[in-house]
Amino acid sequence: MLDQVWFPLYITLKISLASSLIVAILGTLISYILARREFVGKWLVDVLVTLPMILPPTVTGYMLVVLLGKNGILGKVLFDLTGIRLLFTWQAAVIAAFVVSLPLMVKTATAAIEAVDRELEYVAYTLGRNELETALFITLPLAKKGILAGIVLSFARAVGEFGATLMVAGNIPGRTNTMAISIYSAFQGGNSELANTLVIILVLMSLISMAVTTKLVNSWKI
């Protein structure tokens, strides 16, 4: 019983934290570029990033399988070069969580960065600061509430991820059985005691992370 509870909790946190870390870094970068740069094909980047928010997670998952599978476009290259198989590993679940939660981050953070007064950036330029310094010390600090909100939403989305994860990582006990998937299989198997325990833990976890974030954001003046 203990392993049936602790392992899903452990693997869910591991996958969600790893995915959120990538989302935080790549998502901020993508959001900054979408908010501040004009380039050919910008709309395409926007569409591609947003698509997993609209598609059913199983469709996203299926596309990832096609892409990352042993015979998939990226999966084949990876397998031929390194012998690594990605599907049905926790890393595959991280990729699934990343793809489905990225749009939440990008939408929230782009709006926050766009809302930063451009004149503040121009002032920084006239004071001799380059774009990277300006982004790191002016733009992003002023958009930090929106960026943090995006990261929190993405983390929550990753914790709750079910469909795409099931497609790319399966439900292998002791390897890829996340909380959301374990709840479903416990329910299917009639193990309501386990399902109840997992549900309570998941709800408590969500409440605590939300309370902590709200407190943190409220302590920021700007």
């Binding site: 007064d117 004149e119 503040l120 121009y122 002032v123 920084a124 002016i138 600090p141 002023l142 003046k221 700007i222």
Partner: peptide
């Protein structure tokens, strides 16, 4: 110097 001062609020 911009019209709205553009001081860094943080």
């Amino acid at each position: 110097v911009f019209q709205n001062y553009a001081l860094f609020p943080h």
